[in-house]
Design a binder for these strands. Structure first.
Lengths: 171, 171
DNA sequence: CCAAACTTTCAGTAATTTCTGAAAGTTTAA
DNA sequence: TTAAACTTTCAGAAATTACTGAAAGTTTGG
């Protein structure tokens, strides 16, 4: 791959990764910054990101803050250099666990609270609509609880890093 | 639960389910229609949806079309009645499998194509950036392939409907 | 202290997504 | 054939979400 082609391939990858992010509820720029940092060999500063991705300082700053909040990106500083640099977690399985934990905290738990709250109301047993409401929300709650349980087991496990191999071998 | 309280609880549930949908890349109205239909005992027509959710005919129509496209909602007709009615799949595990299959087709497959395409370029072995690009996209591709495999096994399995019980019992 | 180097904030703007409603299209009963 | 009953479409409007850039804030070396 010539250097020109490489640059193009990388840019294309970052652009498309951003588009994919959108369909998963992640904003385009955040996904692109993440892709850029995953592909970077060295930690990278804000100005470089602004140049490479053609984004404003404010945009870079706030999306980096969010990525750090998700635990997908770390701040790095070097002695004698006042700039902050940013570095992405690069191990794919670790990334997955981090995302799973955060989504759990931010989205699964609120959903579960809503479902439990709904399904634990005392139904008026005369009304089939009320009965169905309770049944249905209870079933959803149980499903989400199970999913949650699995995510916990899988993503907190000490053995997390071998799991993918095991899964692939035995399925 | 008094009838008043029930109506309120149901409306609250639908509203919050819509908000939750947003964080998963599903538009609010679509999530709300889905919630409404999951909670409905009888299939429901467009006008009822428009009234209950306070949405326009166009909005109802296009979100229903999408939900049918996802396989989460079915069209129902009664002999001697020209109206179309809509009914949601209510079994939670079946719903999960449907969503898994659709997301796979719509989002996982395009992602995989991008990753494979990127990781199969021949690297210039002199350039550590190029090496890292290949390594990293290959690792992502493998991860997504594994996830895909698992979703296939789980969601197409004949035994799908027992799996949740097994999982809960053994974890 | 000060000022240079750097980061954060946020009001205003731009882009994107979603929604409305009226008009066009389709189906069916008579 | 026709008209009533119903569904679909889509241009423009509204709502939401994301971005910019300049100003304010912070930190640090001297």
């Amino acid at each position: 791959m010539k250097s020109e082609d490489f640059k193009e391939a990388k840019a294309e990858f970052i652009a498309q990764w951003g588009t994919l992010g959108s369909s998963w509820g992640i904003n385009r720029t955040m996904a692109q910054i993440h892709a850029f940092l995953m592909l970077a060999v060295e930690p990278c500063d804000t100005n470089t990101l602004m140049d490479e991705l053609k984004i404003s300082r404010g945009n870079a700053n706030s999306n980096l803050r969010d990525l750090v909040g998700w635990g997908l990106v770390r701040r790095v500083t070097y002695p004698g250099d006042r700039k902050e640099y940013f570095e992405a977690e690069k191990d794919v399985w670790t990334m997955f666990c981090t995302i799973a934990r955060e989504r759990k905290r931010r989205e699964i738990e609120p959903a579960l609270q809503l479902l439990r709250n709904s399904s634990s109301r005392s139904a008026n047993s005369k009304d089939p609509e009320q009965k169905h409401f309770i049944t249905q929300t209870a079933a959803l709650a149980e499903f989400v609880e199970t999913a949650d349980l699995i995510l916990n087991r899988v993503s907190r496990s000490e053995k997390s890093k071998v799991l993918p191999f095991l899964i692939k071998r035995f399925s």
